[in-house]
Design a protein around this nucleic acid. Structure first.
Length: 199
DNA sequence: GGAAAGATCCCT
DNA sequence: GGGATCTTTCCC
């Protein structure tokens, strides 16, 4: 297992004031790190995200605050976790100003730390370990107990070690799996040439 | 109290 | 490409 970068540190609070479509591509390459009791780790670098904004019919915040989506209207830099299709958990990073209702859905990570920990939590591994919002939540043990969690502190953190994808390697597309506002191109992928990937 | 939709996953 | 599966939300 690769050692964690020594210089990795939480993002400045101001980072999360950005509107979601600006924060989303900037989250690519950032480290998502889960810590478990006993010091076990799991995590990797963010490779796929989607932005959901205010005035966005596809967003869970569109109809206003409810018991479940309340963290979306809270301060940026916190987690919004919901259950999808009754089975899977999905993890978002809240952005924008409090009351705005914006978030960035984390759809995929490149698993780098704690592979054994993550594999043990999922039936399938390899390429299918963390390449989907429900998959990465299962691999990292993210559930609704982390709804509203401050992402600058354990047990779930987003860390910056100044890893910055080349702009040419960022692909922008419409969002996936939604039925409203399907044309808005707020999905961002960090796609590198194959030789850059470690297997 | 019931019904319907849903930011998915996995196998065929 | 389609079925599984169940929580949350909304409406009566």
């Amino acid at each position: 297992m690769d050692p964690l970068p020594e210089q990795a540190m939480p993002l400045a609070a101001a980072f999360f004031l950005s509107p979601p479509e600006e924060a989303a591509p900037l989250l690519l390459g950032k480290i998502l790190l889960r810590t478990f009791p006993g010091g076990r780790l799991a995590g990797g670098r963010i490779t796929e995200v989607e932005a959901y904004g205010p005035e966005d019919p596809a967003s869970h915040s569109f109809k206003g605050p409810t018991r479940g989506n309340r963290p979306m209207f809270g301060p940026g830099g916190t987690a919004y976790v919901y259950i999808s299709y009754g089975i899977h958990h999905c993890f978002n990073v809240v952005t924008g100003f409090p009351g705005e209702g914006s978030a960035v859905l984390i759809r995929g990570i490149e698993a780098l730390w704690g592979l054994e920990e993550m594999t043990s939590r999922r039936a399938s591994g390899g390429k299918n370990l963390c390449n989907g919002p429900g998959k990465l939540c299962q691999a990292l043990g993210i559930d609704k107990s982390l709804n509203g969690h401050d992402l600058s502190v354990p047990p779930l953190q987003i860390l910056d070690d100044r890893c910055c994808p080349e702009p040419a390697h960022i692909i922008q597309t419409p969002r996936i799996g939604i039925t409203k506002a399907v044309e808005i191109p707020w999905r961002f992928l960090w796609k590198r040439p194959l030789e850059d990937f470690k297997f």
